[in-house]
Structure formats: structure tokens, C-alpha cells
Amino acid sequence: MTAVAPGRQHRLSHASLVAGLAVAPAVVLLALLLFGPALAVAVFSLTDWQIGASSFRFLGLANYQALFADRIFWTSLVNTVIYVVIVVPGTVGLGLVVALLIEAQPSLRGFYRAAHFLPVMSTMAAMAIVWGTMLHPTIGLVNRMLAEFGIPATNWLRDPRTVLPALAVIGIWQGFGFAMVLFVAGLKSVPQSLYDAAAIDGADRALDRLRVVTLPMLGPVTMFVLILTATRAFEVFDTVRVLTQGGPNFASDVLLYRLYTESFDFLRTGYGAALTVVYLVIVVLLTLTQARVLDRRVHYT
């Protein structure tokens, strides 16, 4: 007994040493690059500090007051919400429909899957430039095609009424293939025996199968796709930076673009930090509530 105890002791301390070594880099970097910075943002948001300045004053909540009094901030928040409200149902709905169509029959499945997935892989900055030329008022493909039907030209990205929907269409274009792939994976995991049972129970028409088996079984996947799409839509930046710079007259300004310009163009660090905190809170709340609400409705056990 006495002989065993020191050995055990030794092994235990050895094990915790190994574990310590294994996690040490991650722990240090988590502190240095994630939690430290997150804390720093909160602190910055309470000061008037600017990058490069040697001194700063604590302002309390003055940055937040300025932020909430800023009409442009509210515009960008509303714009972001409008963008999300268009992109999320568009992406999820289109992704689901395409997934159902692709899985309905085997022919050309591989081709369709790859073709729809291509936008997901492509560099958004470059493709935004391409979209910009497609939406060009005179030489753009979109107006050329509309002209065929006698519809007058629109300057999509310069008209405050059309700029957000236009950006949203680009957002849907990039995201719906991703949603499709996730839905296809979900469809493949629906057991065939459920469709058999439905056929015997009398639910054998396409719509009945959809209602009785497919859609309910896609519940958990839909939750993932919704959360993912919503978070990504909230992070819209590339298209705005490349195509509109928030214009015309802030009609396409969004939260992340605001964050970028205030912090790095105007170098208003404190104000930018306050904006960041608000952005962070929104994204975290969004993710958590969505996960909670949807989880309750689609968890089957």
C-alpha cells in the first residue's frame, strides 16, 4: 500500500503536468487575443482614448450617450435589421427549396450541388465588384435584361430605395448554396422507414410526405441554418465596403461598416469601442435567444 501511493502521486502530477503543457499555449493566447481584447474594448468604450495618444480620460457612458443620440447609428442599425430580415428568409427558403428539388430525383445531382455551392467558395470582394458591373445602370446585365421586357433602367446601387434589397440579393446569392448543402445533409439523414410508414399510413402524395415527414424531420437542421444565416447576415460588410460605402446618403450603412469607419477611418477609438460593444451584445443575444427559442420547438425527445 505504501509502495503504491507515491507512484500514484507521481503519475497524477505527471498527468496534470502534461495537461498543463498541452493547454498552456491555448490558455495564454485565449487571454491575450480574445478575453483580454474583449475586456479592453469595454474599457476603451468608457474613455476618450485615441490610437497613438499618450493619455486618456474616463468619460463614463458619454460614448454610449453620443452613440444613441447619433442618427446615423440608428440608420445603420435599422438598415442592418432590414438586410437581415430580407436575407434570412430568402437564403433559408431558397436553400430549402433547392435542396428538396435536388434530392427529389437522382439525375444531375452532383452538378446542381456543385453549381449552387460555387458562390459560397468565391471571394466576396471580387464577386461584389462583378455584381457591381451587373447592376450598372447602363451596361449592367440586370438592366439590359429588364429592358427586354420594356422595364426602365434603375440605378440599383445609387437609389436609396433599391440599394438595400440589391445588397440583400447579393447576400442571398452567396449564402443559399450553403443552406442547400446543410439541408441536403439533413434530408439524407431522414430514415427511409419513415417515408415507408407514411406511405402505408396513407401519406404518400408529395405534399403529405413533406408535411408529415420531411419538414418536421428537418427541424434541427433548420435551426442551425437560421442561426448561421442570421449571424452571417448581421456581419455584412464586404459588399457595402466594395459597392456603396454606406451610400447613398447612409441608405446602405450597416453596423459593421459603421464600426469600421468610426474606428479606423475617423480613428474615434472610444466611440468605435462603444459601437463594438453594442454590436457584440446584439450578436450574442441574437445567437443565444435563437438557439433557445428554436431548440425548444424542434427538440423531439
Binding site: S193, D196, A199, V213, Y300
Partner: peptide, 18 residues
Amino acid sequence: PKDRDVAMVFQAYALYPH
């Protein structure tokens, strides 16, 4: 199947989980 007046019990039961 539904017009054949048959019922079936499946190996993994195939109950609708929702």
C-alpha cells in the same frame, strides 16, 4: 400501399419523432 389494406411494423419502429 395505402390502398392495399395492409399495415406494417418496421424494424426500428419508424415512429414520427415530432
